[in-house]
Nucleic acid binder design. Structure first.
Length: 480
RNA sequence: GCCCUCUUCGUCUAGCGGUUAGGACGCUGCCCUUUCAAGGCAGAGAUCACGGGUUCGAAUCCCGUAGAGGGCGCCA
């Protein structure tokens, strides 16, 4: 049977990175299997509709290249692909369940807490609905219906026995029916709950592999019971472990970046993000860590999805992003960096050249303003201790002397570019019978006032221009 | 409270009865010497959550315990 996977997000207004990983796995499995990847919008909660949020979903899939084959915007044979447009379908199937005795109408008030048997061992939350309306006689139901009382439709679950289902990742999951309650299938407003809609839609849309977060594991037995009530084949269930933040808590909006747009805004490349999250809960079984999207499609295998939750480590994401940036064509890197250069840098510097110089060095493009700030203005109060470098055996005194000599050597230069500056510096080092390091070190510090710079001393001098370079050298000499 | 699940270096992970427990990020050091960085190499870092079994032999199989995560919504 041809593989069909789906991504079924709710329009919440942003794309959670954990959700994106679910989409990615579903996409990869479909592509790898030459199957179809379906987008379905789960907008059955009328109270939580967020304007324009469907657009966020489209945009997210587009920017990451997770193109769907079928969906609200693309159409397809099993539409509509928006749940709010499928209400008659849910009604039809709910009626079927009603007719077969697998469901019943419940007239209980929304707020009404069912009375629980007063058992003292019951502390804390108690389990769900007590099923009282399931015991209503046909006559009583007719009577309430005649009165026009509002109702919901509940799944009728026999509390005897247990259900076992096989999860592709977690193995056999067994749940005692005592743990289950008569969940609501159709709400009072006529919309289905997730619990009902996902089963009906996944079946009707021919989904072969259901991938979703592992928070649904506990309710899956109820879904299995629905499949059985309808006499439908049960698709493969693939529950995914959660992605956690650094505290070991579920990655949530409140603490830092969780939305795709947050990461995009920092200059992370979509492909690097995909690469990183793919590795959170999946591994290729080889030592490869750098993956393009095409690599992932080729190497992805649902059999290698792990069970343990993974902490999201932005430091490693940044490293991986740096790897992807290095792999970029210079024009592409420049186009990316251009979004992050401060205005004044763009105005005063040759950013094409600058981009080329820093491409191998940038991990997070959002760091570019701070990385390049020294070009615009030198903080004249930088610590002079920076001149002391053990490896190059430089001291404050040696640096002062070197810089004075450099000042003399560079001042007469007519042309100011790499090919004129480097030979002058190099010749000076040679004349002093010194390696170039001890000369480069003080020069770089004098020009930048920084221990670590995005590019080398000669390049910085060239970028700054002759006048500014000499001014900074003079300043350093004065301070030493 | 009840139920489900998870647990290998700080982090992501490999491992599926016999390994010096491997790799990556990060960290430290060395090398390169047209440079700090980058790159290359090396090192530190894991009594495999704990306690019992089974076995000649367990990170790997079984049972308990603990910790963590999740579920128990007219949310998804």
């Amino acid at each position: 049977m041809a593989v069909r996977t789906r991504f079924a997000p709710s329009p919440t207004g942003y794309m959670h990175i954990g959700n994106l990983r679910t989409a990615l796995y579903a996409y990869l499995h479909a592509r790898k299997s030459k199957g179809k990847f379906v987008l379905r919008i789960e907008d059955t909660d009328q109270a939580r509709l967020v304007a324009d949020s469907v657009k966020v979903i489209y945009d997210s899939l587009a920017v990451t290249g997770l193109e769907h084959d079928e969906g609200p915007d693309k159409g397809g044979p099993v539409g509509p692909y928006v749940q709010s447009e499928r209400r008659p379908v849910y009604k039809e199937y709910a009626d079927k369940l009603l007719a077969d005795g697998h469901a019943y109408r419940c007239f209980c008030e929304k707020e009404q807490k069912p009375e629980q048997p007063a058992q003292e061992e019951h502390e804390g939350p108690i389990l769900g609905y007590d099923g009282r309306c399931g015991k209503l006689s046909a006559g009583e139901v007719e009577e309430k219906l005649a009165k026009g009382l509002p109702y919901v439709i509940r799944q009728k679950i026999d509390r005897e026995g247990k259900t076992v289902f096989k999860d592709f990742v977690y193995g056999d999951i067994e749940v005692d029916h005592k743990q289950l309650d008569d969940q609501i299938l159709l709400k009072r407003d006529g919309y289905p709950t997730y619990n009902f809609a996902n089963v009906v839609d996944d079946h009707l849309m021919g989904i072969t592999h259901v991938m979703r977060g592992c928070e649904y594991i506990s309710s899956t037995p109820k879904y299995i019971l629905l499949y059985r009530a309808f006499g439908w084949d049960i698709p493969e269930h693939i529950h995914l472990p959660h992605i956690l933040n650094a505290d070991g808590r579920k990655l949530s909006k409140r603490e830092g970046s969780v939305a795709l747009s947050d990461f995009l805004g920092k200059g992370y490349l979509p492909e690097a993000i995909l690469n990183y999250i793919a590795l959170l809960g999946w591994n290729p079984g080889t030592e490869q860590e750098f993956f393009t999207k095409a690599d992932l499609i080729e190497k992805f295998d649902i059999a290698r999805i792990g069970k343990a939750p993974a902490m999201f480590d932005e430091v490693k994401l940044a490293w991986l992003n740096g790897q992807h940036i290095k792999a970029l064509k210079p024009e592409a890197a420049h186009a990316l960096f251009l979004k992050f250069y401060p205005e004044k840098i763009v105005k005063d510097f040759d950013t094409v050249k600058l981009s080329g110089l820093i491409q191998g060095k940038v991990e997070k493009p959002c760091d570019i303003p701070s990385m390049t700030a020294f070009l615009l203005a030198l903080d004249g109060n930088y610590a002079t201790e920076l001149f002391v470098n053990k490896k190059n055996k430089t001291t404050l005194e040696s640096c002062k002397a070197t810089l004075a000599d450099l000042q003399a050597a560079l001042s007469p230069l007519a042309a100011w570019n790499h090919d004129s500056i480097y030979p002058a510096v190099s010749a000076y080092a040679e004349a002093k019978a010194s390696k170039i390091g001890p000369v480069m070190w003080p020069l770089r510090i004098a020009l930048s006032g920084l221990a670590v710079t995005p590019t080398g001393a000669i390049e910085i001098a060239e970028l700054l221009g002759k006048e500014e370079s000499l001014r900074r050298i003079a300043l350093a000499i004065a301070r030493l």
